[in-house]
Nucleic acid binder design. Structure first.
Lengths: 224, 224
DNA sequence: ATTGTTTGTAGAATTAATTCTACTGTTATA
DNA sequence: TATAACAGTAGAATTAATTCTACAAACAAT
């Protein structure tokens, strides 16, 4: 391997950033795609200058690694191969209250960004963001020394909490994939009525379509 | 930025690979996630030593860039923000018959690997592969070696594997919760056509509604 | 070489679903 | 207590989506 290629990478490709000699962040990346892990790691190393970065691919490894080493920052995807990290986040939060967590997910920030706040997570970054914003976010995240005092979990921001009884009733059928006509027959309502209520459900939850509604419901553990 | 960090990256993290001084590959990466692009680029630069790499994020940019510069290798994801690259691949193949193409996708090889072969693409790499395999595949790709057959994957019962290219293309939109009308507009098809194809998708997968289809897709890791 | 099957595409007819409007109770709230 | 926001329900009009049929081209199997 040639140093020239390296310097090329360095000087031409990436903005130089001075490092802060005082801080010693220890970062753990949890993502099931090695390319994402690698890219993120190299990125943080080359652009932000922090080199103490480990990676894991599964929830299992994540928990083990957190026990083994004392990390200051955790960057993780929501979905790993062996499960949903949202399930383990409450535990992590309880055991490691000072750990800074950044969720780095495929999902758009508008929906999940707010949603994960319930779990006491203050940093959310979509994988779809551009490079500029990504670096900025990462920089803010890692340089932020003060552990985030999270305004205690409002269950008020659960969008499903605001649904009226009839709306929840119809939500139940909608989440099962049942169509407007069948729902109206089941509940002895006109299709118009069901449609109206569905519209209100979508308004209140800010879901754009069934797929998003199902995802949101999963996120908030709505089983109805 | 310190050279020590770089060397650390080099010597500790990545296997050294000798480069071939004769070849001068010019590589274009098309992916809508800047992290993937960056990671891939750095990876190829640092581990394989090829530094002539450009990146684009959309189908549009891709086509423009191919006109502007003469590339030898193209690495691309199937889904970009402004469309499905399966739509443009036939055109690319026709205009640039000598261009080596590697599809680098989230989808498991069993499903899209076959579909993509119909377009004369022999290199397919899932983003879920481990680092070793990724580097090996990239190396073979860039060095123009014949790709190895991966017959190790069985999954005979995967219902998505029987979907035709157009069906997979429409499946992509359906799984995102996009409606028939919008799909038809995106792909310049009549709504009837989209409906017909959706019907065939539901028949082949035995899904009864979108919810079931999404569940099935999740089960078989056909997310995008 | 022939025949059956899959794929990609729609037109016509029909059905499903939504939107816009509106009315009546009910429940907070100023 | 007056008043505004919300909840539950539809009619009329409109739009979205499906079904049924069909046909040509590509492909597979005999």
């Amino acid at each position: 391997m040639e140093i020239r290629a390296l310097m090329n990478v360095l000087t031409n490709e990436l903005p130089a950033v001075k490092l802060n000699p005082v801080m010693q962040p220890k970062i753990l990346i949890a993502d099931d795609h090695s390319m994402i892990r690698k890219g993120l790691k190299l990125h943080v190393q080359l652009t932000l200058g922090f080199t103490d970065i480990d990676e894991v691919a599964t929830c299992n490894e994540l928990m083990k690694e957190l026990v083994k080493n004392k990390y200051t920052h955790l960057i993780l995807d929501i979905i790993l191969s062996d499960g949903n990290t949202l399930e383990v986040i409450p535990n992590i939060r309880r055991v490691y209250p000072d750990l800074n967590i950044l969720v780095f997910s495929m999902q758009p920030a508008e929906i999940y960004g707010e949603a994960v706040k319930q779990y006491g997570i203050n940093y959310y970054m979509s994988k779809a963001v551009g490079e500029e914003e990504m670096i900025q976010t990462l920089q803010k995240f890692i340089h932020n020394e003060t552990p985030h005092k999270r305004t205690d979990i409002h269950h008020q921001d659960n969008p499903f909490k605001t649904l009226a009884p009839r709306e929840l009733e119809i939500l139940h059928y909608v989440l099962k994939g049942i169509g407007t006509k069948e729902i109206s027959e089941n509940l002895n309502l006109k299709m118009n009525t069901v449609s109206t209520i569905k519209t209100r459900i979508y308004e209140k939850t800010n879901a754009g379509n069934i797929k998003e509604l199902i995802e949101l419901a999963t996120l908030y553990n709505v089983n109805y």
